[in-house]
Computed example of a mutant assay.
Amino acid sequence: MNVPSHKIQKEHPAAADELPFQMPLMQTMQVCVEIWGEACNFTISRLDANVRTQRKILDSGSLDEIQVVQWRHVEKMMDDYHDEVGRMIKYCQGLPETAQFPPGASGNQTAGHRAAGDSGKRPGGQAG
């Protein structure tokens, strides 16, 4: 198809706010980048805490001290993971809702039901 260049130059893609539909892909990608960054920062901080704990264990003079150091480490670890789950949930709430598609002609079936065909029986002879 031969299109003159002056026609191409006059056309421009619509801006995101001009589109008749929303673009959830960009929002999803932004949230994924934020989640990945948060996960990396969390992993680094947990590794640093683990190294500090190992150093304290090596510097301990008795088994009782080692138990106290390990117990404090586990308590902090549980608090950190609890806080991180809360942050991840907040990030996931920023994701756009997924499209809801109606079930196909065969309905929502597990792979086992589809493999058994239309007989309604599960593999192994059990009725569905």
Rank of each mutant, 00 (worst) to 15 (best):
E84C: 12
I35R: 04
N108V: 13
F101C: 06
V69Y: 03
Q100R: 05
P102V: 13
H82M: 06
A49C: 10
A16S: 13
S5E: 15
Q27R: 04
G125D: 04
E38I: 02
V85Q: 08
Q9F: 08
T43R: 15
E34P: 01
C92G: 13
G128S: 10
H6P: 00
Q70G: 02
A99W: 02
Q67V: 14
C40P: 02
L25R: 04
V3S: 04
N108I: 14
S119H: 10
T110E: 04
W36H: 11
N2A: 13
P24V: 00
N2L: 15
I66M: 10
I8Y: 07
I35M: 14
A49L: 09
R46G: 00
L63M: 13
I44A: 14
S60Q: 01
Q54L: 12
M23V: 04
L95S: 11
S62A: 05
G124H: 09
V33L: 11
L25P: 00
M29L: 07
N108F: 10
D17Q: 06
P96A: 00
Y91W: 10
T110N: 06
M88V: 14
T98I: 02
R72L: 07
Y91I: 02
G94W: 07
N41E: 13
E84T: 08
I8V: 15
H113C: 13
Q22E: 15
W71Y: 12
G124D: 08
Q30H: 03
F101R: 03
E11F: 10
Q70S: 04
E38K: 04
P20C: 06
M29P: 00
D64R: 05
G107R: 14
D80M: 09
D79P: 00
E75P: 03
V69K: 04
Q70P: 02
M23K: 01
V33H: 02
M88C: 12
A116P: 05
V68P: 01
G94H: 11
E75Q: 14
I66D: 03
A105G: 03
N108M: 14
M26K: 01
C40T: 09
E84D: 12
N41C: 13
I89V: 15
I35D: 04
M26P: 00
N108Q: 14
V3C: 02
I57C: 07
E75F: 07
V3T: 05
M1P: 01
A16I: 12
P4Y: 08
